[in-house]
Nucleic acid binder design. Structure first.
Length: 573
DNA sequence: GCCGTTTTCGGCCCGACTGTTTTCAGTCG
């Protein structure tokens, strides 16, 4: 069973217990365990088999036993028992704004509301407003939410690249406002997560009223729901919620820290601070001993006051960054400027939209020293295939190029066939400078075969890197079934690089797997997979994933000049 | 239910808002 599926079972269990009314800390414990399982980076099923799940922070004896039961029988006995008493349809009811577990439970007990359909009926018949603690307003809010399309599913998220396009535009315009003192994008966008629920903008302004007014009349903003001197809540034309918060400049550091999150990072940071008699909020840090509360203008000062290094936003997920920051041992994270070349891109020979020269020139303008042209291969289909003779002609053209200031490498993104072999013969591959191997077919192959397919490909002496190793498309397609631990181990053993594909729809390897790979000693490459000259700029999403994976420049091959990278790969061993 | 620079028991972040209330519980971020 995959980590995500195990995590989901515990999230459901937490919701059921919450509806049952157990002490909140038990619910929190199950949710924390679910998060730890989801982000484990290695197979939790495998850990369970080895009796090691309690090594995960947040998993103790009780939850370990429940994991065992889940893996053995396919369900958690406690959850089955609860479902006999509490309809699981109530979980959807708790996702209606304004309704939480307590109120959903009350509706179940008084009105027999066990699903969203029941809820709609009760509200339409005017029965909701007579329940103690409810009123006309509550009933109206439920009907409004249902009419607006609330369907009890978790909130929709927006791909980071789409959210950033809007957020950077908004922030840029607000910085130009005459009253702007400080303006920053916060929240998960600042942490460079895969996707975001909303945009958080924090600001200091000499004239908050005028500033909020300017925000509300930005071209990207559709409706402003509420606004005042402290900020505003609005929605863009694309339906993305945006929160603007304003504080005095002297507390800007506290506000930025608070709204950058993550929630889990802040929670852990505050819990640790309380033990030292310090209380952290978005307004300042209160000290039990002196009795006063101090505000800080910068985040650096906030973290310093709490006795630790400033934590880069990409690391703020409560994955060990607080311990590292206290010990002064945060890694020196890779930066976009460290990248020397891009080793995965397409041209019109396959499904790209520009020539070799256009791609190379755009890369040179970005300051790169080298690029590899890696068009799709012989079995690719969709009319985008490149047959061996065509590839060899492309190699000749590349060798004959006369471009100043950039090295163009002849490469391929060769399909990994079902048996793990590539779709070019070795004599063809030997003519190339760089080989990326990727899975583009048979996504639904069972895990064992899919894993062995990829491991076989890594055994090939000419395969330099595996492209987008899990095949996921964020929000659109789940990763194919693959045992990532075995893939990582094989990458270490064979000296094959694993790619972080920087396409913002992919970001594959993801942060969790890339961190596991880095820790195991895998060398990674970060590539744009560009199909146009301008999408070479997607590199920043890959570097962000690398930063979220705690990677240093040292661990990423293409931070080196080509001659050095060349010596690092398996064919030079 | 988990966990330990205060602890193997007794805690477990902080603040704002809403709607229903005579002082606050529940929800949300």
């Amino acid at each position: 069973m995959r980590n995500g599926e195990i995590a989901e079972a515990f999230e459901e269990l937490a919701s059921l217990y919450e509806l049952d009314g157990v002490v909140v800390y038990r619910v929190v414990a199950y949710r924390n365990a679910a998060k730890a399982i989801r982000e484990a980076g290695v197979s939790v099923e495998e850990m369970a088999r080895q009796g090691r799940v309690e090594e995960l922070s947040g998993v103790g004896k009780t939850i370990a036993e429940k994991i065992d039961a889940l893996l053995e029988t396919g369900s958690i006995p406690a959850a089955e028992k609860l479902k006999a008493r509490i309809p699981s349809g109530l979980i959807a009811v708790t996702r209606i704004p304004g309704l939480g577990p307590k109120r959903a439970r009350l509706l179940y007990e008084t009105l027999d509301v066990a699903s969203l359909d029941n809820l709609r009926e009760a509200a339409e018949q005017g029965r909701l407003k007579d329940v103690p603690g409810f009123g006309a307003k509550a009933e109206e809010n439920v009907l409004t939410a249902l009419a607006a399309g609330a369907d009890g599913s978790p909130k929709t998220r927006t791909l980071l690249s789409k959210a950033l396009a809007i957020g950077e535009e908004l922030v840029g315009a607000l910085r130009d406002h005459s009253s702007a003192l400080k303006v920053e994008l916060a929240g998960s966008a600042r942490r460079w997560g895969d996707d975001v629920k909303d945009l958080d903008i924090v600001a200091a302004s000499s004239d908050p009223a005028a500033f909020v007014e300017a925000f509300g009349s930005s071209p990207a903003i559709d409706v402003v729901h509420s606004s005042g001197e402290a900020g505003a809540r609005a929605v863009t034309h694309t339906g993305l919620p945006v929160d603007l918060r304003i504080v005095p400049e002297e507390a800007f550091g506290n506000l930025l820290q608070h709204f950058t999150g993550s929630g889990k990072h802040n929670e852990a940071l505050r819990t640790a601070a309380v033990k030292r008699g310090l209380h952290v909020s978005e307004y300042g840090i209160a000290d039990d001993e002196s009795g006063d509360s101090l505000a800080y203008a910068t985040e650096e000062e906030v973290y310093e006051r709490l006795g630790m290094q400033w934590v880069p936003p990409e690391l703020r997920e409560n994955r060990g960054e607080l311990e590292a920051a206290r010990a002064g041992r945060l890694p020196q994270l890779i930066e976009l400027d460290d990248i020397r070349g891009d080793l995965h891109m397409h041209t019109t020979a396959s499904d790209g939209h520009a020539s070799i020269e256009e791609m190379a020139e755009a890369a040179r303008e970005r300051g790169y020293q080298y690029v590899a042209i890696t068009d799709h291969s012989a079995s690719h289909g969709f009319g985008d295939d490149v047959q061996p003779d065509e590839l060899l002609r492309q190699v000749e053209r590349i060798r004959a190029l006369e471009l100043e200031g950039i090295t163009v490498l002849a490469g391929t993104e060769s399909n990994i066939l079902l048996d793990g072999s590539l779709d070019y013969e070795d004599p063809v591959l030997e003519q190339l400078d760089w080989v990326v191997a990727s899975v583009h077919t048979s996504f639904r192959t069972p895990e064992k075969e899919q894993t062995e397919r990829m491991m076989n490909a890594m055994e090939h002496p000419l395969v330099d890197a595996i492209g987008h190793p899990t095949g996921r498309l964020i929000e659109r397609r789940a990763p194919y079934a693959i045992d990532i631990d075995r893939v990582i181990a094989k990458a270490v053993e064979t000296g094959t690089f694993l790619e972080i594909n920087a396409n913002p729809d992919r970001r594959d390897l993801n942060d969790v797997y890339a961190k596991a790979a880095g820790e195991a000693g895998v060398t990674l490459v970060i590539d744009s997979d560009a199909h146009w000259p301008h999408t070479l700029a997607n590199m920043r999403y890959g570097v962000a994933t690398g930063r979220r994976a705690w990677l240093t420049a040292e661990q990423v091959a293409n931070t080196r000049p080509w001659a050095e990278l060349d010596k690092l790969r398996k064919r030079s061993r």
